[in-house]
């Protein structure tokens, strides 16, 4: 799994589950020597869309995000999550740094959370499509 895939899962993971797990790993000493490189900051991210008629970009608006950067035992970690949850952003950045340092196999609890997050995203997508596909319609033309 690439670092980007791991960060994507961390960005989409449940905030409470992520924070609880990171706090637990810190309490057990599994993760130590954390330094805040960029304190959590809530702001916006510009959203550009490329439309299909002229293949031209335009700005549809911004999205609320929170970003943080940390160092764990000298390894840099970064996270950006939608919304304004500073603690969750820091927890994700710590997880990113720790996984970058020891590898996903070195921290099975985080590997499990990442795997579960991906599974939940897939399940949500399948549930949604299962409902929507029943509304597929084939209109008939009247003579």
């Amino acid at each position: 799994m690439s670092r980007e895939d791991i960060c994507s899962s961390l960005a989409n993971s449940d905030a409470v589950a992520l924070e609880t797990l990171i706090n637990s790993l810190i309490a057990r000493g599994t993760i130590a020597n954390i330094e805040m490189i960029r304190p959590p900051s809530t702001g916006t991210i510009q959203m550009q869309v490329r439309e299909p008629i002229c293949e031209e970009r335009f700005i549809v608006g911004d999205a609320l995000i929170t970003v943080a950067e940390v160092s764990v035992a000298g390894t840099l970690g970064w996270a950006m999550r939608l919304g304004g949850d500073a603690n969750a952003a820091v927890a994700a950045a710590v997880a990113d740094a720790h996984i970058a340092r020891v590898g996903l196999e070195g921290v099975p609890e985080l590997a499990e959370l990442i795997s579960y997050t991906q599974l939940e995203l897939d399940r949500t997508e399948q549930r949604e499509w299962a409902e929507i596909r029943e509304t597929i319609i084939d209109f008939e033309e009247l003579d």
Partner: peptide, 8 residues
Amino acid sequence: RLDTAIPV
């Protein structure tokens, strides 16, 4: 404004 997303 902290960043710009990759255009979608």
